[in-house]
């Protein structure tokens, strides 16, 4: 371990920068690096940074429980208790396609996505519309393996740090880069978080995130009636399941041929090239199908000047 003094500001633009810091300065590990990064950049004490992440974890857990309890119906009818339906069906009826663990990912991811649509309290990870992805996969796995809360908090720093690279080099906004920047980023963050629960290997974490993001490149943001409901909530499930699959592949040693930083660059380029109609304006895709327009008309007081 190096004895160099950790600088007062830490700036990262790539995984190479992270490796450089880890190599040059006496950070204990990747978790320690990201906690220090946050503390330095926010001018906060490290303990307070950890406390704040613990708060986020608690709210995330609460959002799963509440999302499963609530009726989860929206005025548009686009959301109507999907989480509960999947839970009840898989518990009592046939077929339960892949068993309880897989069901839990779907149920938990939907629970938070639906709770968000119904004005419940969530942690935007990285956005409100994608807030089900991380709890759906990461909390389900943490519970299955009885992982301590301290380790869960640590893992969230790693996932958040990987998301930070996307934020810095592209964006986490559907309005800027389409759904790939929301559900895609959430899935990459989640895959990284899951891997770091088991191995703090930057190589494997990077591969998991790179695969997860590359699987969802090109995903457009075309919400019906401009609401964070359809296809947003279902896509949270896609993001969760994709994250689990990519984390499993990365843990097994599969490498993403294109490095994470370059996948992020590709996402930015694709997002920049996407027309505005597919970036949260509800002027394209599912939003302007015949049925999409009909729902939109009902939900927006039918104002003719509304683009949706």
């Amino acid at each position: 371990m190096s004895t160099n003094i950790i600088p007062s500001r830490i700036r990262i633009r790539s995984t190479r920068d992270i490796r450089h810091y880890l190599h040059t300065y006496p950070f204990k590990d990747l978790v320690d690096f990201f906690i220090e990064y946050e503390a330095k950049n926010r001018i906060m004490e490290k303990e307070d940074v950890v406390k704040r992440m613990d708060k986020a974890l608690q709210v995330m857990k609460e959002s799963v429980l509440k999302g499963k309890e609530h009726k989860n119906r929206t005025p548009s009818g686009l959301i109507d208790g999907g989480s509960k339906r999947v839970k009840q069906y898989t518990e009592k009826e046939h077929p339960d396609l892949l068993g309880k663990d897989f069901d839990n990912v779907i149920v938990n991811s939907l629970a938070v996505g639906e709770l968000n649509a119904c004005m419940g309290r969530i942690v935007a990870t990285p956005t409100a519309g994608a807030s089900g992805v991380l709890p759906g996969a990461f909390l389900t796995i943490s519970e299955k393996f009885n992982i301590s809360e301290e380790c869960q908090v640590n893992a969230l720093f790693v996932g958040g740090g990987i998301g930070e690279l996307i934020r810095i080099n592209a964006s986490l906004s559907g309005a800027q880069h389409g759904c790939q920047a929301e559900i895609g980023s959430a899935s990459a963050i989640t895959a990284a978080t899951i891997v770091s629960l088991f191995e703090l290997s930057l190589d494997k974490i990077e591969n998991a995130a790179a695969m997860a993001l590359s699987n969802l490149l090109g995903l457009v943001c075309d919400p019906v009636a401009g609401l964070v409901e359809f296809p947003c909530v279902n896509r949270n499930v896609t993001g969760s399941i994709n994250a689990v699959a990519c984390a499993q592949m990365a843990l097994a040693g599969i490498k993403c041929p294109i490095p994470f930083d370059e996948v992020v660059g590709a996402m930015k380029q694709i997002g920049d090239d996407l027309p505005a109609s597919l970036k949260e304006t509800s002027r394209g895709g599912l939003a302007i199908t015949a049925t999409g327009k009909k729902i939109s008309k009902e939900m927006t007081d039918g104002d003719p000047r509304d683009p949706a």
Binding site: Y37, N116, G129, G163, R167, I189
Partner: peptide, 21 residues
């Protein structure tokens, strides 16, 4: 702007711009 902008904010849904903002 940093990690708590990625894991956070804690907010009432459904939209960071249309509800939280």
């Amino acid at each position: 702007m940093a990690i708590f902008d990625v894991i956070g904010p804690i907010m009432i849904g459904p939209s960071s711009s249309h509800t939280a903002g």
